[in-house]
Simulated scan of single mutants.
Amino acid sequence: MAEPLKEMFNKAAVDWLAGRLGSAWPDFPAAKFKRAILADLPALELIARVDRIALEMQATLPADFRKAVRIVTKALGAPPPAGDGTDFGSFRVLPCHRFVAQAGLDHTDHALAYFKDTTRHFSGEFDIRPFLVRDQARVLGVMRDWADDKDWRVRRLASEGARPRLPWGLRLQALVADPAPLLPILEALRDDPIEAVRRSVANSLNDIAKDHPDLAVEILGAWRSDSSRAPLIRHALRHLVKQGHGGALHLMGVDQAAKFQLRDLALGKTRIAIGGSLPIDLALRNAGKRAAMAIIDYAVHHLGARGELRPKVFKWKQVELAPGETIALSRKHSLKPVTTRRYYPGAHKLDIRVNGRILGEADFILTAK
Rank of each mutant, 00 (worst) to 15 (best):
F33R: 05
L55T: 10
A113P: 12
P164C: 08
L205Q: 01
K289V: 03
A43T: 05
V72P: 15
H235V: 05
I53Y: 05
R357T: 02
V14W: 03
G304R: 11
G246D: 07
A48K: 10
H110I: 04
A216I: 00
A258Y: 00
A368M: 07
R153K: 15
R271G: 01
L182F: 03
A13D: 04
L140P: 01
T270L: 03
L182K: 06
T86Y: 02
R341A: 00
K150F: 06
A39F: 00
L76P: 15
D40R: 12
A2R: 13
I37H: 05
K34I: 00
A103C: 12
F33C: 03
W16Q: 12
R144A: 11
R171S: 09
A287E: 09
S227Q: 09
L61D: 13
E320C: 03
K289M: 04
Q136R: 14
R92G: 12
T108S: 12
L251C: 04
T73L: 14
T367E: 11
A266Q: 15
E160Y: 08
S123P: 10
A2Q: 14
D109E: 15
L21F: 13
V93W: 14
S200Y: 10
L366I: 01
W146H: 09
V354F: 01
D151E: 11
W223H: 02
L112C: 10
K32T: 08
D109I: 06
T108C: 13
K269C: 08
P29D: 10
L76N: 14
R263I: 05
P193A: 11
L240Q: 07
D127N: 15
M8G: 09
A230L: 06
L21W: 08
A78I: 13
L132Q: 10
I219W: 02
I358L: 00
K289L: 04
F91E: 04
D27F: 10
K317Y: 01
E160D: 08
E325L: 07
L303K: 08
D226Q: 10
V142P: 07
A273T: 10
R229L: 06
R224T: 03
Y298A: 03
P81A: 14
